[in-house]
Simulated assay, not measured.
Amino acid sequence: MDKWIELVKAKMSDLKVTQEVLADRLGMSQGGVGHWLNKRRQPSIQDMNRVLRALGMDFLEVAMVIREVLQDDEPCLSHKYNPYFRYPVSEWREPMQLRDGELAVYGKPRFELTDYHAQGAAFWLVVVGDAMTAPTGVSIAEGMMILVDPAIVPEPGKLVIAQWSDSTEATFRKLIEESGQRYLVPLNPTYPKALYTDDCRILGVVVQATAKF
C-alpha cells in the first residue's frame, strides 16, 4: 500500500495532476481519492489498478502477493523508489536453464513485473497441478505465478523448483530434512514425498507467488 501511494503521488507530481483531476478521471469525489492517498481508507486491488490506468501506467498491475521475507540489508535508493523489476516467464515443461551465468531464452520471452530484486537470473513459472495446494496454511494453487531465484541457497524449509534427470518438466515441492536425509515434499497431503537424490537437481528457490484478479 505504501509503495503504491508513493508511486501514485510521484506520477501525479510528474504529470501535474491534482487530486481533483484524478477524481474526475475516476468518476468519484476528491475526498475519496484523498482518503486513499492519506491512508485513511484502503482501496481495493481493482481500484488501485484503476488509478494506475488513469495515470497512464497500464503496464503496471497490483496483485495479491505471497512471498518469503528475506533478511537483507536496506535496499539502495534506486531500488526503494523504483522497486519494479521484470523477469521472463518460462514454460513448465522446459524451465529455463542457466548457461554461463545467463538464462537460455528461446523465442520471444514474455515478462512479468515484481518489486523483488533477484540475486540471480530469476524467472517466472505458472503453477501446473495441485500438488502444492494445501488444506491449511501456505497454499500455492494451480494457475498462480511463482518467481524462481536460482541464486538463493536451497536450504531445508524452502519451496524449490527441481528437475529429475529423466524429465524435462519442473517439479515444485518443499525441501525438508529428516534424519539427515532430504526429501521433496508436496503441500497437498494426497501426493507422496520423494527422496532427494543425485538424480535430481534444484533449479532455484521460489521467492514469490502471485494471484492476479
Rank of each mutant, 00 (worst) to 15 (best):
153 V>E: 15
193 K>A: 14
95 P>E: 03
131 A>Q: 07
145 M>F: 12
136 T>N: 12
126 V>Q: 13
130 D>G: 03
133 T>F: 04
78 S>G: 09
202 I>E: 00
160 V>H: 11
169 E>T: 12
167 S>E: 10
177 E>I: 14
80 K>Y: 08
88 P>S: 04
136 T>M: 09
183 Y>E: 05
86 R>V: 11
166 D>P: 08
92 W>N: 01
150 P>F: 03
108 K>M: 11
146 I>M: 06
82 N>W: 09
90 S>I: 03
100 D>A: 13
81 Y>W: 09
127 V>I: 15
154 P>T: 09
199 D>H: 13
191 Y>Q: 05
123 F>Y: 13
177 E>N: 00
176 I>M: 07
150 P>R: 05
103 L>Y: 02
113 L>N: 12
104 A>M: 13
155 E>W: 02
153 V>P: 00
86 R>K: 14
184 L>P: 06
107 G>S: 03
124 W>H: 04
163 Q>G: 03
143 G>Q: 10
205 V>W: 10
160 V>R: 10
122 A>W: 00
188 N>M: 01
84 Y>Q: 01
152 I>N: 00
151 A>H: 13
164 W>F: 11
191 Y>G: 03
158 K>N: 14
163 Q>R: 15
189 P>R: 02
130 D>V: 15
111 F>W: 08
85 F>W: 04
134 A>C: 12
152 I>G: 00
204 G>Q: 07
101 G>K: 08
157 G>Q: 12
80 K>A: 14
140 I>S: 02
126 V>S: 04
139 S>F: 12
157 G>A: 15
175 L>S: 03
188 N>S: 05
140 I>E: 02
182 R>F: 11
146 I>S: 11
138 V>N: 03
166 D>F: 09
189 P>C: 03
130 D>W: 05
154 P>G: 14
113 L>M: 14
151 A>M: 15
165 S>Y: 09
169 E>M: 10
112 E>A: 13
141 A>Q: 14
194 A>Y: 12
95 P>W: 02
132 M>T: 00
143 G>C: 09
185 V>A: 08
112 E>S: 08
85 F>I: 02
196 Y>A: 04
165 S>E: 15
83 P>G: 03
147 L>K: 06
94 E>F: 06
126 V>K: 13
104 A>V: 15
185 V>S: 08
142 E>H: 09
138 V>Y: 11
143 G>S: 08
98 L>G: 08
179 S>L: 11
94 E>C: 02
156 P>T: 04
88 P>C: 05
98 L>M: 15
122 A>T: 00
142 E>M: 07
137 G>V: 05
134 A>H: 11
175 L>N: 01
164 W>I: 04
132 M>P: 00
107 G>F: 00
154 P>K: 10
155 E>Q: 10
190 T>W: 01
143 G>K: 08
160 V>Y: 11
150 P>Q: 14
162 A>F: 12
181 Q>D: 07
97 Q>L: 10
76 C>L: 12
180 G>E: 09
160 V>N: 04
104 A>C: 10
121 A>S: 12
78 S>H: 12
